[in-house]
Design a protein around this nucleic acid. Structure first.
Length: 273
DNA sequence: CGTCAGGTAGCCA
DNA sequence: TGGCTACCTGAC
């Protein structure tokens, strides 16, 4: 099996931090990952990352192994608390997800819980995708834009009130246009995404950060709100702090790579605290 | 049985 | 802008 020498990288934390849903841990400690029409496995042993089913360049891109982690960590290390969250989950990296799959994933995440989000995406793949295989592993591809046109079938995936949003987004999105948001500014990309039904501030920021290269995004959900109020707005009246204000503060305070700070804070507050 | 979960749309002051 | 509330569904 091929391998890559890695440093400042922790596969388990990267997959487990909650940014990505379509993966499964196997008995031997390897992970089976589904991404659009790919099915592949990855396993880490110390500073070696073994992989099969995809080219090396794909793995490097996906896990951002091409970027200067130390530089980013240094730039967001603004205080003791954020340093603690980084130390706890050192090696966690943001992933470069596929914009379309990421968009649908996060539309599914609204007022939902992680086990069910995973199940929803699995069902969508089973009902709309194609059978794919990698070695002895079997799976389903994620459907392409335009292929989620059967509303009743979407309902059958257990996504509830999000069915309408998924259906509408499917009819609206032109994939080339979605992907080209990478070349637009963060503000423009965000604005475009919010025009979609079912996509508000938080989901737009997640899609920007996880799939459109916008590490200057700072999504604020309930967990981010909690951890920020507890550590950066101490003594202030929570009722007077809007999520938008938290977002603006986070972007300003942590700077250009605030998305990384965001994910460390999120991960820490959800699991460790 | 209620409650709750990684928000958002729609409506109103 | 900011502050409500309903919303599918399945697991406690």
């Amino acid at each position: 099996m091929e391998s890559i020498a890695v440093k400042d990288f922790d596969l388990e934390k990267t997959l487990g931090c909650g940014q990505f849903f379509r993966y499964e841990r196997k008995e031997d400690g390897s992970y089976l990952i589904s991404l659009r029409d790919r099915l592949f496995s990855v396993r880490q042993e110390g500073s070696k990352l073994f992989f099969s089913g995809v080219p090396k360049e794909f793995v490097i891109r996906l896990f951002r192994l091409d970027e200067n982690y130390q530089k980013i960590i240094k730039s967001i290390s603004k205080d003791e608390f954020i340093r603690k969250t980084i130390k706890t989950n050192f090696g966690m990296r943001l992933m470069r997800q596929d914009p379309w799959e990421c968009l649908i994933s996060y539309i599914c995440s609204a007022n939902n819980n992680i086990p069910r989000i995973k199940k929803n995406l699995e069902m969508i793949s089973m009902k709309f995708g194609k059978r794919i295989a990698h070695d002895a592993h079997k799976g389903f591809s994620f459907p392409n834009p335009g292929e989620l046109s059967n509303y009743d079938k979407i309902r059958g995936c257990g996504v509830g009130f999000r069915s309408r949003f998924i259906h509408e987004t499917n009819q609206t999105i032109e994939e080339g246009r979605l992907n080209s948001l990478k070349d637009r500014s963060y503000e423009e990309a965000r604005e475009e995404l919010i025009k979609l039904k079912g996509v508000g501030d938080k989901i737009a920021d997640c899609v920007c950060m996880f799939s459109l290269e916008k590490l200057e995004a700072f999504p604020v959900d309930v967990w981010m709100r909690r951890v920020m109020l507890e550590n950066y707005f101490k003594g202030e009246d929570p009722k007077k702090i809007s999520n938008n204000r938290i977002r603006e503060f986070g972007r300003e305070y942590f700077g250009r790579y605030c998305g990384y700070a965001n994910q460390f804070l999120f991960y820490y507050r959800r699991l460790q605290k």
